Simulated scan of single mutants.
Amino acid sequence: MVKKAVIPAAGYGTRFLPATKSSPKEMIPIIDTPVIQYVVEEAVASGITDILMIIGKGKRAIEEHFDRSPVLEETLAQKENFEMLEKIRAISEMANIHFVWQKEMNGLGDAILHARCHVGNEPFVILLGDTLVQSEDGPVTKQLIDVYNQQKGPVIALEEVKPELVSRYGVVDGESISDNVVKANDWIEKPSVEEAPSNLAVASRYLFTPEIFDYLEKTLPGKNNEIQLTDAMREMVKNHPMYGMKFKGKRYDIGNKLGFLKTNIEFGLKDPEIGAELKSWLKDFAGEL
């Protein structure tokens, strides 16, 4: 059973400066909920009970968000705002959440290496802390776990992207073995349109077996002098069967300003409290453009 998750959340968030100078990008809200809370909720809905977050300097707010807040809880109780009190308490009770510090920003691969002691000899999932994924078939992380239970090997979430955009992503080189599962031969980081073996891009959710740590330890710094997870994956697939899973749904990249604004609008339209009013306003506003 897959019960452990790792959420890397140590990056500087430079694309959101100056907002991220003292506030983690993972705490930027979509409507009224921090991005990283949505990520944790996805993990919990997938059956995960133990979560390790990799954090860095300036990320203390993430720890505080998932901790109890007795003063706030007492204030809400005194005001008889019991609905909000229940929501606040639920945040700290969702899962067993642990934290470890990545003291230097040496890449995603290095961040994952910090989870070795937490993971032990168990399979585990990775959810990037600044990206949301939604699927009509349920939590994407749960779908990865289902494929792992069938194939007994690492599984990477994939999304179809426009062929002209493949140079922005890591993509899989593989062969379809079912409607939504690909057996990987290689992983190519940001290929040119001409060199791309497919338009199936890695989509910020991974399920690995512990062997990935052995490959990460041997991986030399690559692009930006950082340890790249994709480099370790390329070596691992030579000796261990690996799979990709195409999910039906959408990935929301909160790591850039335009993606953040689009996500807030889409989530706002679905929000039962403000959705109808926002839709009406958008129609009026669009008519003025």
Rank of each mutant, 00 (worst) to 15 (best):
A9Q: 04
F16T: 02
V39T: 13
F16D: 00
T20W: 06
I31H: 06
E26N: 14
D32C: 08
S23R: 08
S23G: 09
M27C: 09
K25Y: 02
S22Y: 08
R15F: 11
S23D: 10
M27D: 04
Q37C: 15
Q37L: 15
A9W: 00
T33I: 09
I30E: 05
A10C: 03
M27K: 01
A9K: 02
A9H: 03
G13A: 01
R15Q: 10
G11M: 04
L17W: 03
I28K: 01
M27G: 07
L17A: 11
Q37W: 14
I31A: 05
M27E: 03
P34F: 15
G11A: 09
Y38R: 13
G11S: 12
S23H: 11
Q37T: 13
Y12G: 12
Y12R: 14
I28M: 13
A10P: 02
S22L: 07
K25P: 00
E26S: 12
P29F: 12
I28S: 07
G13T: 01
R15D: 07
Y12V: 08
I28H: 05
D32A: 11
S23M: 09
P18C: 11
A10F: 04
M27P: 07
F16K: 01
V35H: 06
R15M: 13
V35Y: 00
E26R: 03
T20H: 10
Y38I: 13
P8Q: 03
T14H: 04
S22G: 06
S22A: 07
V35P: 12
Y12C: 07
S23A: 10
G13S: 02
F16M: 05
K25T: 00
Y12Q: 14
G11T: 04
A10V: 00
K21A: 15
L17E: 09
L17V: 06
T33Q: 09
G13D: 00
P24S: 02
Q37F: 15
R15T: 12
T14S: 05
Q37E: 15
Y12K: 14
P34C: 14
E26L: 07
A9I: 02
P18I: 09
I36W: 01
I28Y: 08
A10L: 02
F16C: 05
A10G: 04
P24N: 02
G11Y: 00
Y12T: 11
P34L: 12
P34W: 14
A9T: 04
T33S: 08
K21Y: 11
I28R: 01
A10Q: 03
T33N: 07
I36D: 11
P8R: 03
F16W: 02
L17G: 03
Q37S: 15
A19Y: 08
Y38K: 13
A10N: 05
